[in-house]
Write a protein that binds this DNA or RNA. Structure first.
Lengths: 232, 232
DNA sequence: TTACAGTTATGTTATAAAGCACAAAAGTAC
DNA sequence: GTACTTTTGTGCTTTATAACATAACTGTAA
C-alpha cells in the first residue's frame, strides 16, 4: 500500500534529522514512493540472501538484525529503535543481505526504494554524509563488539547486553528496561546458551544488580552493571 | 616530508580506482597536500585514542588494524594490503580512533589531510560513493567475523584466518602464503592463545593440509582448508 | 476445567580451550 | 664465536562454558 497521509506526516515530523536535509522537490519524490508496512511480533522483515531494494526506517516498534551461525545458533548483531534507518548496507555494498531482520514486537516500517534514495544522493551531499556517518559509527560498534563478545566472560557479556538494551531502548519510570526479550534472545545477543543466560541472570538477581518479574528486568544497580560489563 | 614526484606518480598510476574519479583540479589539490610516510616493521601507524586527521593509503607493505582487548590480549580486526585506503572510519564517525594500526613489515603510506578529502567529497559524488561502498563491505565483513570468531571452534577459526590471509595477500609460486606472521599474530587473528595456534598448526601439518618452514606456511590442500574453515 | 507447547529454571556432566611450565630453536647483540 | 632474548613447540592441569536432563512455570486453546 502507498503511505497514508498521517503516517507520512508522522514520518516527516519525527524524521527531522534526514528530512531537513532534503529540499521540497526531494521530499515530494519520497512522499510519492514511500510505502508503509506493518509487521507482527516475530515476523521476518528480510532474510539472508534476499536482494535489497528498499531503504527501511523503523517508525514504531523494535527490530533485531541477526545472523544464523554454524549449527543453527543465531546471533543478534544489532537492534533498531524508532526512528532509525536500516537495511541499506547490502545495497551499498552491492551484495545480497548477509543478515536477517525480524520484529521483536509489532512494528511499523517505512520503505523507500533504494533507486530513489540513490538519485537523491547524487545531488545531495548531506544525505551521502548521513549514510557515511551511520556506516562509520556502526562499523566502530561492530569492531568493539567483536572484541567484547570474544574476550569477555559470560558475566561481562550479559551485563554488556543489558547495558546495550538500556542505552538502546531506555528505562521506564520504575527503572525496568523498556523491552521484553525472551531469554533466548538475550542469550543470542550475549553469545551464550539460553541456560547460561538464565543462570547468569539469577546470579545478578542474587547480587541485587537486577530484579526479575517474568521478562521484565528491573535495574537496581546500573553502576555495578556497567562495571561488570567493563571489567568482567 | 612532502610527497616525492616518483612516489606520487606511482600512487597516481596504481590508484586508478580513486584517481580516475577525480578531475584535474582535484588531483592537483591532492598532489599538493599528500605526504608519504615510511614505517618500519612493527612500527605503530596510529594508536587508539588518537585524533584522525589524515586519510591513509597503503602503497607498499602490509598493515594490521587491531584492538587491545580485556587483559591486554590483542585482536586483529582486519589487514590492509596495497593499494587500500584506511584510517577514515573514525573521522567520518566523528570519533577518535578505536583501533590501532601497525606495519607487519616495512611499509609506505600516503597521507592525505581529511579536510582536503572532505572538500572534494562535497562536490564529487563518486568519491562519496567509493567510501560508502568500502564502509558497507567492511561492515558486512565485520558482522560475518563476529559470528565466525564466536561460534566456530579453534580448528575452524585458524583455518579461516589462513584462508583470509590467502585471499588478502595471495599465494607464491610454491603455494606458500605471501605473508610471514608470528604465531602470536596468527593467534590474535584467530581469537585464540599462541599455544593453541601453534598446536593447531601442527595438527594441520599432521593432516597434510599445510607444511611449515619457520614462518612460511605452504598450503598443500586449499580445498580441505576452506572446508575446515566453513564447517569447523 | 484439562491438556499441551513453549519458556524458564537449576543441577550434573562433558569438553574445548585457556593457563602454566618448561624445553628446544631461532634470532640478536656483544 | 658466546651470551641472551624472543619465539616456537609440547605436555599437563585447570577452568569456563556448552551440552544434557529434568522439573516448574506460563500462556493458550479446546
Amino acid at each position: 500500500m502507498q503511505a497514508k497521509e498521517e503516517d507520512i506526516m508522522d514520518f516527516s515530523t519525527n524524521l527531522k534529522e534526514v528530512w531537513r536535509l532534503l529540499n521540497g522537490q526531494e521530499r515530494e519524490i519520497i512522499r510519492k514512493n514511500a510505502i508503509i508496512q506493518h509487521y507482527k511480533k516475530n515476523q521476518q522483515i528480510y532474510v539472508e540472501g534476499d536482494e535489497p531494494t528498499h531503504l527501511m526506517c523503523l517508525l514504531k516498534g523494535k527490530v533485531k538484525i541477526y545472523k544464523e551461525g554454524v549449527g543453527g545458533r543465531s546471533q543478534i548483531i544489532r537492534v533498531i529503535r524508532p526512528i532509525q534507518y536500516f537495511a541499506y548496507r547490502a545495497y551499498f555494498a552491492r551484495e545480497n543481505y548477509l543478515t536477517n531482520a525480524a520484529a521483536f514486537e509489532s512494528s511499523i516500517v517505512c520503505l523507500i526504494p533504494m533507486k530513489v534514495v540513490r538519485e537523491i544522493m547524487k545531488h545531495n551531499y548531506n544525505i551521502c554524509k548521513f549514510f557515511i556517518k551511520q556506516l562509520s559509527v556502526d562499523l566502530g560498534i561492530a569492531d568493539e563488539r567483536t572484541v567484547n563478545l570474544t574476550q569477555k566472560h559470560i558475566r561481562g557479556r550479559l551485563a554488556e547486553s543489558l547495558v546495550f538494551l538500556i542505552d538502546s531502548y531506555g528505562l521506564e519510570n520504575d527503572s525496568s528496561i523498556n523491552i521484553y526479550l525472551a531469554r533466548e534472545d538475550l542469550a543470542s545477543l550475549s553469545n551464550m546458551t539460553t541456560s547460561n543466560a538464565i543462570r547468569t541472570l539469577s546470579i545478578f538477581v542474587a547480587e541485587k544488580v537486577i530484579a526479575l518479574d517474568g521478562r521484565k528486568i528491573k535495574v537496581l544497580d546500573e553502576e555495578k552493571l556497567r562495571k561488570i560489563s567493563k571489567l568482567g
